[in-house]
Simulated scan of single mutants.
Amino acid sequence: MKLTTREKSSLFFEGVSTVILLAMINLAIIVILQWIVRRNPGVNSGIFIIKQSLAFGPMEIRIWSYQRIVIGIMLIIDVWVVWWRLMRRYRQYQMDHIIRELHYIAQGHLDHRISFKLNGSLQDVITSVNTLVDSVVQSMDDERQVEKSKDELITNVSHDLRTPLTSIIGYLGLIENKQYHSEQDILQYNHIAYEKAVQMKGMVDDLFEFTKVQQHGAPLNFMKVDLDPLLEQVSASFELEAEKKGIEISTHVDPKPLMIEADPEKLGRVFSNLVSNALKYGHGATWIKLSASRYHEMIIVKVANNGEPIPQKSLKHVFDRFYRVESSRSKATGGTGLGLAIVKGVVDRHHGQVSVASDEKETAFTVVLPASQTAPSEAAVNGDAAKAQLAE
């Protein structure tokens, strides 16, 4: 930290004034002591006796002189006082500089940091201030991101709901205004409106589920779950739809039973979303395979299909909310773009990881979860998850 010219001058005059003041005090002390010694013969005699007793050698060298001792003690005290006053003033200037920097930051210059280095506790103050400002800036950025996300959420939801809602209003309007030619037209219009309403309900359900996943304060109902019947149940729920598309769904769990500590409802939603995603977007697929295995303390579940691969540029975005690999697919399937975001949210809350790999042979979503929620630190989970995926 560099002192200003004014501060340097102030320090200089502080030192000079302190030296002058101390010199006057010292002179007064010496005069008083000499007066005491002269006015008290007993004191003078005592000093003489001490001087005689402290004579050394054949030359009777005397090292005692109370004036020298007093002056020496006063010089030591004077040096300490001058140093203390100058350091106190210097510390005050350092604090003034820190306060000026704080005022500058408080005026809105949040990109500014206190750059100078100091010794002692004031450096801890500077470090704390810089850390606090970084934390405030990060919090503001996070808040802006949350607000932006909310705006995007409202925009996307409004856009997704408007299309089926427009169709529902349109077809019901035709019926309301009697713009039909036969009862068959009424049934057709009513059926289309019903399908659009079901589509809207699916969107609202996805949005509701996504919102619940994002609320990390909401408790999960952890219990011991056997993955074999869970995956069989998921497979059975999509069997009819898969048959219509000529797709075979199979499950394989090893070992049996394969127990995991999880929220069964949330975990079932994860695998249902992955299978549903494969049915919607795995164009040309002939099979969907659900497999589960154990690797040390980690459970690995893979949902794979041999349909159309996901473009490599889209792989890193598939878990982003409202992201669709192709917009035309969304129109055809009625997807919200929240399915895989829900998957990632649930897996994160189970302290696991989810990844995707896709090529001409297969598209596979791999979920790696800890067998017990009481284990490992985050770093350990990440490391074991990576090893587990490599093992697969």
Results as ranks from 00 to 15, higher is better:
315 L>M: 09
315 L>S: 08
315 L>R: 03
315 L>F: 04
316 K>P: 04
317 H>R: 11
318 V>S: 08
318 V>H: 05
318 V>A: 09
319 F>V: 03
319 F>H: 02
319 F>T: 03
319 F>N: 03
319 F>G: 02
319 F>A: 01
319 F>M: 02
320 D>P: 03
320 D>H: 11
322 F>Y: 15
323 Y>F: 15
323 Y>C: 05
323 Y>D: 07
323 Y>H: 12
324 R>T: 12
324 R>P: 04
325 V>S: 09
325 V>M: 10
325 V>T: 15
325 V>L: 07
325 V>G: 12
326 E>I: 08
326 E>P: 01
327 S>Y: 13
327 S>A: 14
327 S>F: 13
328 S>K: 15
328 S>E: 11
328 S>I: 15
328 S>Y: 14
329 R>P: 00
330 S>I: 14
330 S>G: 14
331 K>A: 10
331 K>M: 13
332 A>S: 13
332 A>F: 14
332 A>D: 14
332 A>Y: 10
333 T>I: 14
333 T>M: 14
333 T>D: 10
333 T>G: 07
334 G>I: 14
335 G>Q: 09
335 G>A: 15
335 G>Y: 13
336 T>R: 12
336 T>Y: 12
336 T>A: 14
336 T>S: 15
337 G>M: 10
337 G>L: 10
338 L>V: 09
338 L>K: 08
338 L>H: 11
338 L>N: 15
339 G>R: 11
339 G>N: 08
340 L>N: 04
340 L>K: 01
340 L>T: 03
340 L>R: 03
340 L>D: 00
341 A>H: 03
341 A>K: 04
341 A>R: 07
341 A>V: 05
342 I>V: 12
342 I>P: 04
343 V>T: 12
343 V>K: 05
343 V>W: 01
343 V>A: 07
343 V>E: 02
344 K>C: 03
344 K>H: 04
344 K>F: 00
344 K>Q: 06
344 K>R: 05
345 G>P: 03
346 V>G: 11
346 V>I: 15
347 V>G: 01
347 V>W: 00
347 V>T: 05
347 V>Q: 01
347 V>R: 00
347 V>D: 01
348 D>R: 06
348 D>T: 13
349 R>P: 05
349 R>M: 05
349 R>C: 09
350 H>C: 01
350 H>I: 02
350 H>S: 06
351 H>W: 13
352 G>M: 07
352 G>S: 03
352 G>K: 07
352 G>L: 13
352 G>H: 10
352 G>Q: 07
352 G>A: 10
352 G>I: 09
353 Q>D: 06
353 Q>L: 06
353 Q>R: 13
354 V>Y: 00
354 V>N: 03
354 V>M: 04
355 S>P: 00
356 V>K: 02
356 V>R: 02
357 A>T: 10
357 A>L: 09
358 S>Q: 07
358 S>M: 06
358 S>H: 08
359 D>P: 03
359 D>S: 09
359 D>A: 09
359 D>K: 07
360 E>Q: 15
360 E>S: 13
360 E>M: 13
361 K>N: 13
362 E>D: 07
362 E>I: 05
